[in-house]
Amino acid sequence: MDSVAAEQKLLIEIQNVCYDYGYGDVLKDVSFPINSHDFLAIIGPNGSGKTTLLKIILGLLKPRLGEVTIMGKTVEEFADWKKIGYVPQKATHIDSLFPVSVKEVVAMGIQSSRRFPRRTRGEDICCISRALQQVGMGEYKNRRIGNLSAGQQQRVFIARALANHPKILMLDEPTTGVDAKTQEHFYDMLQRLNREKEITIVLITHEVGIINKHVEQVACLNQTLVYHGSHDEFCRSDEFKRMLADGHHLVSHHH
């Protein structure tokens, strides 16, 4: 029988991507693939171009050079964006007074991918409940989003992405400022989604020293791609030691 690895398909290909904001390169000639079933962490210190790269993949920014293909299509051609669930950096940009319930936030994901709107009912409501249960937020569906903790809001955003049955989840700094125990639960949940639902997970983080054991692949950025490969090998690599020595671990696991 073929191994699991052999069944992996190329989902996203990043090819020679360069980007600058007008004051020097933020990304220089970055290339690496993202395959189905990957659990990939894109890491690197602040200013290393992680978020920029994520935005390029999502079509929010246009690279100066190079291109990104998603499921065989260039970002410009790609139209099936609901297959890519984006989970933004938590809470920071959300207006806490915004009158929207958890249920409504998840419904945004489903409804916005429709050409013509229809009322949220029946099958949609089941889909919303299921997505919320998958992230352990089933009981909160009528709560106002602004009344939840940052970690809970993060889960709701994941549910919003899950409601569209994505192939990939992209998370921007999902565990910044979250305590170790909650973080562990969070990664367990991501691993379940990765293994059981076969969702490819891509997350970016600047906390180099505390990449969770669930992460399988690492792409380490510092304007250029300095490492791409398995997590275990990365932990033994010189690059990792150098980054730790440079103080890029930032947040310790045991505090």
Binding site: L58, L60, A79, K82, D95, F98, A107, M108, P117
Partner: peptide, 20 residues
């Protein structure tokens, strides 16, 4: 007709954009 899209982009513009 655009209710959900308006709501989405008002609440979370970047995610709305990323969702197409």
């Amino acid at each position: 007709v655009n209710y959900h899209k308006f709501m989405y982009m008002t609440f979370d513009r970047e995610s709305a954009k990323a969702s197409g």
